[in-house]
């Protein structure tokens, strides 16, 4: 592949912020999405963390930049500033803990406060593999998500069930909305296409 000049490795970049209570599995979901063989357990996130993944949607290479926020209460003050410039928000709760589901409301309010209107969001119920310990029924969560105008996906980061779907659905939704208001400025920081000039420019000086 040495025949091709160095060019940006993606066509568009999307920033996605993941929020939710602590211990619901935000980091695990992100790690599993980025690398499917990643371990299951992580220490609590401090401040913020990143995950990068290149995916292909509609023949375009999209780089998904996932911001993993800290769920613990004491980091709340910091978390709010990670919404800036985000294209989409993932709200995570734990299906085995009602409290985390109740707190979704708070997180949603926070997200709406700091992001633009009509921001694509997606609700994720994690740990769906723990069927017998389930405390939040699917129908309840679905009706709530419906009221809030967003899709709900139940995932299991442990068994990798639906983890990909979360981000693919979100990116699709973001792209769809961008297409709709393409008349305005596109919000995705679009890089030049594969055969951009920048790479070949380099050839001029250092040949």
């Amino acid at each position: 592949m040495a025949e091709y000049p160095k060019v940006p490795q993606y066509d568009a970049i999307y920033k996605v912020t993941v929020i939710g209570d602590s211990q619901v599995g935000k980091t695990t979901i992100i790690r599993k999405f980025v690398d499917q063989g990643a371990p299951d357990h992580y220490p609590p996130t401090i401040g913020v963390d990143f995950g990068l993944k290149d995916i292909v949607v509609e023949n375009e290479r999209c780089r998904v930049q996932i911001w993993d926020t800290a769920g613990q209460e004491r980091f709340r003050a910091v978390t709010s500033c990670y919404f800036r410039g985000a294209h989409g928000v993932v709200l995570v709760y734990d299906v085995t803990q009602v409290k985390t589901f109740d707190n979704i409301q708070f997180h949603l309010a926070q997200a709406q406060q700091f992001t633009a209107d009509n921001q694509p969001m997606i609700m994720v119920g994690n740990k769906s593999d723990l069927g017998e310990q389930r405390a939040v029924p699917y129908s309840l969560a679905a009706s709530y998500a419906h009221d809030m105008g967003m899709p709900l996906i139940e995932t299991s980061a442990k068994t990798l069930n639906n983890v990909d779907d979360v981000f693919y659905h979100l990116i699709n939704e973001i792209r769809k909305r961008h297409k709709e208001d393409r008349s305005g400025e596109p919000r995705g920081d679009r890089k030049s296409s594969i055969f951009a000039r920048s790479g070949s420019r380099r050839g001029w000086c250092c040949s």
Partner: peptide
């Protein structure tokens, strides 16, 4: 196009690798 999307779920297709896979679809006219 759909195949490539599904492949990107399974594989780590960044940059050149995707370009190589999708070469047939994007006839290089540059």
């Amino acid at each position: 196009e759909l195949c490539l999307m599904h492949l990107s779920r399974l594989l780590d297709l960044d940059g050149d690798k995707f370009q190589a896979l999708a070469m047939k679809n994007k006839a290089p006219s540059r």
